[in-house]
Nucleic acid binder design. Sequence first.
DNA 1: GAAATAGTGTACAGTTCTGTTCACTGTACA
DNA 2: TGTACAGTGAACAGAACTGTACACTATTTC
Lengths: 187, 187
Amino acid sequence: MKLSMRNHIIETASELFRAQGINATGVDTIVAEADISKTTLYKYFRTKEDLVLEVLSQRSQEFRDWLSGRLSKVGQDPLKKLNGLFDCIEEWMQNPESNGLPFLKASAEFPQQDNLVNQLSANLAKEFQQYLTAMASEAKVKSPEALGQQLAMLIEGAILSEQLNKNSGALGFAREAALSLIKINLP
Amino acid sequence: MKLSMRNHIIETASELFRAQGINATGVDTIVAEADISKTTLYKYFRTKEDLVLEVLSQRSQEFRDWLSGRLSKVGQDPLKKLNGLFDCIEEWMQNPESNGLPFLKASAEFPQQDNLVNQLSANLAKEFQQYLTAMASEAKVKSPEALGQQLAMLIEGAILSEQLNKNSGALGFAREAALSLIKINLP
DNA sequence: GAAATAGTGTACAGTTCTGTTCACTGTACA
DNA sequence: TGTACAGTGAACAGAACTGTACACTATTTC
């Protein structure tokens, strides 16, 4: 048996969602790729939506963990962390297994506000922005909330641009913008 | 008869796509809402995808026209235009009939790179960014391409944030960021 | 050895969606 | 008067998708 069937399913689905999109990936494809029977999948997840929510949560958790681990390598100085942020993002984007910020794509594929996936995405987006705001706060900049939001928007915009038009250099320009904004906000 | 049946269909579909998303709007809904028969729709459009592409082109054209018209009210001075950009965007967002940048949502609903809607969206995104770069160029800033890209990313990020979490104040923070970036880039 | 546990395989119900077919109706116009 | 044109209405083919049912098979555990 697999180490954990439930996890095996999540991993498989996650990879398929990343490569093809969520809506474009049917349950049949997931079970075929995971080499399990449909019965099994529906034993571990009530519906496909449940699975999607689980994948999304897990991927976001992974990103958060990766980012804070990676940032702690930069050092302890909060300002250094802020300045190193875009290096991390760039590294994350270069990883072919990453797909940008998972909640961005998910919210886009489920645009309706009453949809659970959309709602989870909105929460995750908010968390991400609050994480950046907290970082800005620790660095004792003038307007942490403004800077946090601005960095979040730059990152989101950059990832979108980069994925929509590869090699547009968007990420590099976003980094410059971020550095300028941080500088302006220094006490 | 309608003034132009083709246009009537585009208008109806456009409104439905805006309100519910593209994938969530079936052909049957469109013909019901437009009060026409399915036969007629398929006489004017070979496939639903054709209709989507047409709607997307038209909406983008409308936005471009609206924006340059609105900006020309600000005045002739290119720098003033740059600085007034976010006022226009805010106005555009407040219009309940707007749906942000149409190509953003569309590209999100069709994430596959070989998809025609995705490709058109990518082109429209590029055009938008080039439009901003041209504006920056006219204003004779130091790095027009960088500034154009940065403004595009801020706008895209702001619209995403705003739609994902209403009343987050994202647009206001984006405006501040834009003004700072413009200022830094002055010759 | 019996029973519980975990998973298989296949068929299928039921829905939804795109796109087609076909016989039809009203209307403008020559 | 007759024909060409624009559109109707309803049925349906065909595909894709989610979720269920049911009878079956290993494997562990008591």
